[in-house]
Nucleic acid binder design. Structure first.
Lengths: 348, 348
DNA sequence: TCCCGAAGTTCGATTTAAATG
DNA sequence: GCATTTAAATCGAACTTCGGG
């Protein structure tokens, strides 16, 4: 390995001067161009790469940001990660991504590993998390800038970025209503998932505003589960159950796309065609939604934007820490967007 | 931050002794239990966590492994990553995951960043890579244990893990043939993709063995593209084109699942139902395949196993390096598995 | 005082060599 | 020589301080 001393020897200057030149430190302005050229030449010739361990040990900086995802296989998160990645890439930070797989033990272990590596900030993608308040405690006391994506927090030391669930759900029913649907079935999210309540609030709020009647027999809840793809199966089953009750409905609003896929399967098995005999709308707009046939109408979460926003929040936080400023946590709520595809249409 | 000297002071011993005890170094066997207890107690009391930068600087080890993915949004890779992650987690290595986004510049920059962080090994998930031979050169000269997933290499310094494409394709046609299909359309992969040739070879090999006739008019190629999801659209278009030629076919074998989704869309638009009027089979078995309606019959790549295998290869490589053994690159080819679902059935 | 460069200290842990009884 | 402990050197870069022109 070639060290700064090797460059010093090769160029004929001292290690100090080499350091000053290569880092373009304040003192570098006094150093004549000729010296700089010689040093830079020597560095290039030897293929010198500074040892980050030494550098970080001294500077107490890692240029690294920890990213924890609760479930990487959830299609929701890959685009969020893209957003994070692109922002950090520009800022020359390296993300260290860990997949917690919804296991508490992994969360704690990875958090330790990240702190051990002196990440300068933390971004947590809390998709499908069944909240553990005490986990947040671990985070708070670490006192490095932290942003949480997908989980609303009142917290004033941890920032958060979420989608406006209420608005999204409102928009979804509104879309079905505008198409002429009046008998709508609902599969709500699991009670313990923080997204569930505001989405349902959006539905109720629309229903109240426009006088849409909500039939309690056509409202069911997803059970809890640690696996985000399990809602496919439970969506399937719940839809099957609702069909068995013979209560007619012309449209179904699913908690998320995965659930919607399950519903479509059940409708199809029952001989009902989507959208001809029943419209279906999802939430999230995961990649698969535009790939399936028929493509799914859904509420798109601005995932890349959410990732980018979280990244810029923590980058700002890092600057604040460096400048010893105090920066309060911020809480952002981004608007979703209706993606109209072929799984919804007017009832016949 | 609490350092080893703080622990030394607290326990009443020197930093040396603390280090020996906490690392359970060879010399620790001379140290009386009482001393160990005191030191461990002090460390725990102070919440001592060794500084990894200092440790790595001295030991020249990072306990870190670089993982480069060519496109994270490709659903193929998340399960591969799970496999890698789980293996490394057990071995107490931290993966640093980078998403190259199929950009050469990013590849190089991330490779530098990883090498700067002294990753002890490298795993490259080369899904949907349009090979750059010279990129491999960069890797070779870095001479750290490297494994490539999804790209066959003759190389003897870089290991590789791939799926048996020929066998997979053979199995796929065999499945269609067994169902009674004789007029089969094929959408082959892009010429420059290394998976394309062996898959086609598998088809030809089956055709020859069983006397299946391959109609050149029903064989088309995907164009090149940097975006793995683009094959949805091109699959759609190519299928549409084939339908226009009016050459009858009762089954279609797509290069991969994404292409198959495009085909299904085109068939559906043309009023042909899958599988009633045309069977469709994919390759990969991405998550969406079992979620769509009808669920897609496909050739499943053992993604998690491939990831785990690559991880164990490089871990073995690290041990070899530590023991100054020489370890030749290994090349593994894993068997895929036929996943029969509802998109294929006997022709009427 | 301004300019240029270097010696020496520091970061925190590991390890070698050596000093105790 | 043995068990027990430690001072000092080391890893590589960055920064503080200082000296000479």
């Amino acid at each position: 390995m070639v060290t700064i001393r090797d460059v010093a020897k090769e160029s004929g200057f001292s290690a100090t001067t080499v350091s000053i030149v290569l880092n373009n430190a304040p003192l570098a302005r006094y150093i004549p161009i000729a010296t700089k050229k010689r040093i830079e030449g020597a560095a290039k010739k030897l293929g010198y790469r500074p040892n980050l361990f030494a550098r970080s040990l001294r500077s107490r900086r890692s240029h690294t940001i920890g990213v924890m995802v609760f479930d990487m296989t959830d299609p929701f998160c890959t685009l969020v990660l893209r957003g994070i990645e692109n922002s950090l890439y520009q800022a020359s930070y390296l993300p260290i991504l860990t997949d917690v797989q919804n296991e508490r033990a992994r969360f704690e272990r990875y958090l330790e590993m990240l702190l051990d590596r002196r990440v300068e900030a933390l971004i947590v993608v809390a998709n499908w998390l069944f909240v553990n308040i005490d986990v947040l405690g671990d985070l708070e006391k670490s006192n490095i800038p932290t942003a949480m994506i997908g989980l609303e927090l009142k917290n004033d030391s941890i920032s958060s970025v979420i989608v406006d669930n209420e608005l999204g759900a409102y928009t979804a029913v509104e879309h079905l209503y505008a198409l002429g649907h009046r008998k709508i079935a609902f599969i709500r999210g699991p009670r313990t998932l923080t997204d569930s309540a505001p989405r349902w609030k959006g539905v109720r709020s629309f229903a109240k505003a426009r006088g849409l009647e909500l039939d309690p027999h056509l409202i069911v809840d997803l059970p809890e589960s640690r696996d985000p793809t399990s809602s496919f199966e439970t969506g399937y089953k719940l839809t099957e159950d609702m069909l068995k009750t013979k209560r007619p409905f012309t449209a179904l609003m699913a908690f998320d796309d995965m659930t919607a896929f399950g519903s479509i399967r059940a409708l199809s098995k029952a001989g009902l065609r989507v959208p001809e005999q029943c419209s279906v709308i999802g939430f999230d707009d995961v990649a698969a939604s535009s790939l399936c046939t028929p493509p799914l109408t859904s509420i798109r979460q601005p995932m890349a934007a959410m990732g980018a926003m979280a990244a810029s929040i923590v980058l700002e936080g890092i600057n604040a820490v460096l400048e010893k400023r105090d920066l309060p946590a911020v809480h952002r709520k981004l608007a979703p967007e209706l993606a109209v595809r072929d799984s919804t249409r007017s009832p016949v």
